[in-house]
Structure formats: C-alpha cells, structure tokens
C-alpha cells in the first residue's frame, strides 16, 4: 500500500505519503485563502521527500469535509483528477473522522466531539465514543444548540469555549492522520467514502423577488 493523502476542508493545506504502516512524508501549512495555490506544490513536495514515484502509488485519499466549500473543492477536484490521470482509486474520508483519529493517537481518551469552523457562527461537528466510532454527525449547527461530549477538539470547539469547555487541539486536520485512518480502514477491508463533498448546506441562492419596476410607483 502506498497512499497519497491530502485535505483542504480546514484552514490547513496538508499532504502526506503513507506506506500502509507509517507516514513517509507530510506537509502542513495553515493558509485558509490559498488552498488552490498551495495544494499541488505540497503534493509534489511530499512525494519527493518520501522518494516515491507517483506511478507507484496505489491510491489517493482525500478529506471530503465538511468544510468551507471553495477550499474543499480544491482537494476534491484535485483528487478526482489525479485518480483519473494516474488510474488510481480515490478514497474519501470524513475530515472530522481524521481529526478524531489524530486526537486519539495523541492520547485523547473517552467520548468526545470534533468541531471545525463552519463560519456564519456555526460549526461542523461529529461525536465519537471511547472506541473512536462516530456516534453523531457530521452536521452543521450553531454551537449553542449542541450538546457536545465531555471533551472537544478542533478549531470550531476552540472558537466557542462557552459551548465547548476545555476544548483542545488538534485544531485542523493533518494529512498524516487522514492517511493513517484510511490505511487502517483499508487494511481492515472496510470501504471508504466516495470522492463527493460533504457540503451539509444547500447552496446560497436568492431567488430574485420578481422583476423590479424602474418607474416610480
């Protein structure tokens, strides 16, 4: 197994190469407005650092969100195009699941909630049990309307301490954790998600309120 993984669903632009056992190389840059510019150079960099020829890859892993749409699409269309051009399967992973995997790897125990910033005073969130299995979400809601687990992680939790007391990192997802999560699932013979974004919200589209008269009433 030789996976190229990346995620653009949080302010981090992150890419990693994973051989099924360990992360061979990883990059992580926080710049919420430059996903488009930074992703492909990051992909190129991790492959060079890992000493892996792209034609030896066995799969592409991409975080499918939820996350702010414009950045999220950069990762998804890149994954779809790389999969197509290199003839590789593309495996989707819920970005919140990857953050949960990372939090547990960093020592978090017991049930907990992952929340990322959904802007407009809302968070993208999901809850997990002590074994790491997702028990609620992913969903998008106002923090005040949630009943989070006893522990919380993610930038969305850190942003709203009133709703997520004692929140901690990781703030954003790292592609190493994304790849490790995918490698474990694939090794266990489980299917991952299709390369389709988890938008969770309908598109903003105002229907014009009929034709506006130009003559004074």
């Amino acid at each position: 197994m030789l996976l190229l993984a990346f995620d653009t669903a949080t302010p981090a632009v992150t890419a990693a190469v994973h051989d099924g056992t360990a992360v061979l190389a990883e990059t992580f840059t926080v710049d919420a407005r430059r996903h488009g510019e930074l992703l492909l150079p990051a992909v190129d960099q991790v492959l060079r650092e890992a000493g892996v020829d792209k034609h030896r890859l066995t799969g592409v892993v991409v975080g499918v969100g939820p996350g702010p749409y414009t950045g999220l699409r950069v990762g998804l269309v890149t994954a779809a195009a790389l999969g197509h051009a290199l003839g590789l399967p593309v495996h989707g992973v819920c970005t919140l699941d990857a953050i949960a995997h990372q939090a547990r790897a960093e020592g978090l125990t017991g049930p907990f909630t992952v929340a990322t910033d959904a802007r407009r005073k809302e968070v993208y969130w999901a809850s997990y049990d002590a074994g790491g299995a997702r028990t609620a979400g992913p969903a998008v809601d106002r923090p005040a309307e949630l009943t989070p687990g006893p522990r919380s992680v993610g930038a969305g939790a850190l942003l709203y301490p009133g709703s997520f007391p004692d929140a901690t990192g990781p703030e954003h997802v790292s592609a190493g954790a994304l790849a490790a999560f995918a490698a474990a699932e694939l090794t266990a013979g489980r299917e991952l998600l299709p390369c389709v974004p988890l938008y969770l919200r309908r598109p903003d589209a105002q229907v014009p309120a009929g034709y506006k008269a130009v003559l004074p009433a």
Binding site: L40, L82, L86
Partner: peptide, 19 residues
C-alpha cells in the same frame, strides 16, 4: 467567477502534474 475558476485551475494543475 472566482470559485468556478478555481475548480478548473485545480483540475488542470492535477492533470498537468500527473501526466
């Protein structure tokens, strides 16, 4: 449109790099 352009540019970069 910024968001629309970004989808095409990201795809083009991925194809160019992969190929």
């Amino acid at each position: 449109l910024a968001g629309a352009l970004l989808v095409g540019v990201s795809a083009a970069k991925a194809y160019a790099w992969a190929l």
